[in-house]
Nucleic acid binder design. Sequence first.
DNA 1: CTGCAAATGAAATAGATAATACAAAATAAT
DNA 2: ATTATTTTGTATTATCTATTTCATTTGCAG
Lengths: 288, 288
Amino acid sequence: MHKDIRALLEAPPKPFTPAERKLVRVLLADFPMSGLTTVSQLAKRCGVSDPSVLRLVKKLGFSGYPEFQSTLVQKIDERMRSPLSMLPKSRQGSPGGDKWDDFIDAAIEKLGDCRQLQVRQDTEQLLAWLSDPRRGIFCHGGRFSGFLAGYLYNHLHLLRSGCCWIATPSQLPEQLIDLRPGDIFIQFDYRRYQKTAALAIETARRRQARIVLFTDIYDSPLRQLADIVIAAPVEVPSPFDSLVPAMAQVEALIAELTARLDCAMTTRVEEIDQIRQQFGSHLLQDDQ
Amino acid sequence: MHKDIRALLEAPPKPFTPAERKLVRVLLADFPMSGLTTVSQLAKRCGVSDPSVLRLVKKLGFSGYPEFQSTLVQKIDERMRSPLSMLPKSRQGSPGGDKWDDFIDAAIEKLGDCRQLQVRQDTEQLLAWLSDPRRGIFCHGGRFSGFLAGYLYNHLHLLRSGCCWIATPSQLPEQLIDLRPGDIFIQFDYRRYQKTAALAIETARRRQARIVLFTDIYDSPLRQLADIVIAAPVEVPSPFDSLVPAMAQVEALIAELTARLDCAMTTRVEEIDQIRQQFGSHLLQDDQ
DNA sequence: CTGCAAATGAAATAGATAATACAAAATAAT
DNA sequence: ATTATTTTGTATTATCTATTTCATTTGCAG
């Protein structure tokens, strides 16, 4: 809507009055910081009265000071994001620009962003839950993220019993019947958010499950319903979002969990192999 | 005075309560933007109550929300002046070594290695094949990499017809019957290499399919049988190998392919939506 | 299960803040 | 000068915000 406040200040629709010019001068001086204070503070700082500030804001086309301010915050947000995405470009080999490598670069950057997103305490909590053999684990995801759910499940299954993967929403009812209080329900849901995800989580919550949500860094409506949120950046130069950071998180989780449950896994995998041998050639080799 | 809010959030003086962790998560997610709103807005966004926000702020050592907020603004001010300050922060906070972040770091490194592995000509060839609507596409993978195959299939399916995903080896016979000369058989096979993969590829070859192999950088026995090889590093600090680089490659491929088939996809997706509407509520929302 | 302590949220309160009305001052035109 | 018009500030009001109180819930140890 309001494209650029700065442009508006520099080329006003109507000429500014003297008091307004005072304000504009300050606003432009350390743009956009000075706009983050209250009306009175800004007014005093510029040596004008409160109403003068309000009048300027309205003249610029805003409905009121709050709207003006939130537009400024948006502007800041853009600025904060952009420099990061421009700096670590050390492309040397590719000449005209290689879409493939550009994508990989973007993925690397997003993966880097991951590091700052995780609260250690959350991770510990999650690991503690997953290590508890009494808690059942239910993995579920959307059309694309469902594969991550399955990927996670396949690893978990090697580490412990009581895991299940709900591959499609239609299986939700028949699987959630076994969900008991204290069990862990792990939902993958990235934009665009799916309706069934909300349904699934609500049901799991009602059955007093711990809710773990793998989602993107944006405002998933499910965040509030989750006990633990693992957020991943998804934006890459592609019409589709990327699940690379998400997958890295899944693998990181598994790596840590494996470290804790190592001996348990060893015996478990041995037993699996043993059983598989009994089947012998009756099944096509179906495992890694 | 208050040096670094971010540091405070990552290494709290006292352990956080669950509600506080929810807040911290959001605050860190798009630091420091989310702290610029009102208490109520922030609270609602995080799914906690107003008092929880206030308690957190006090626990962090601020006299109240306004002080907290103005400290954030200061922080923004610093950052706006020197964009360098927001470069990937050198790991100093984590003392004994954070396994999670170590893993992510390793993944980043491996992903970086990817860039030098790809021969552009191969990519072009592959894209040309995949863009050709006359060629059928068959995706198949192992126990873990099978999910990548499915992930790839799901995207391909939105772009064009004639794709299929062979989810388990047992489906190979019944699916490969439809493989015609010139079709593309995409196999995912990372160590430890599976026996069925070799079988599948040989069969596909005999039927004169083009063989595309997604594998690791080591000596897969299948390399010789493939027309195109996309190799990924897999070694990470975990007992399990990582498929993160592999997934990035899949996504990069899709990104490029989408760029070429964009208009085709648009109409196709529209048609899918149309059909879905006809089903209406008869199916649980099963898509992205 | 039961009781205890910690954590949390609903509701009420105290305090700012933005917005408004109107009067005073400044400016420009006659 | 005098008036008309614009600009500005003072004082007030309505609205929103942060904060506190207290009852409820939740998690946990015996």
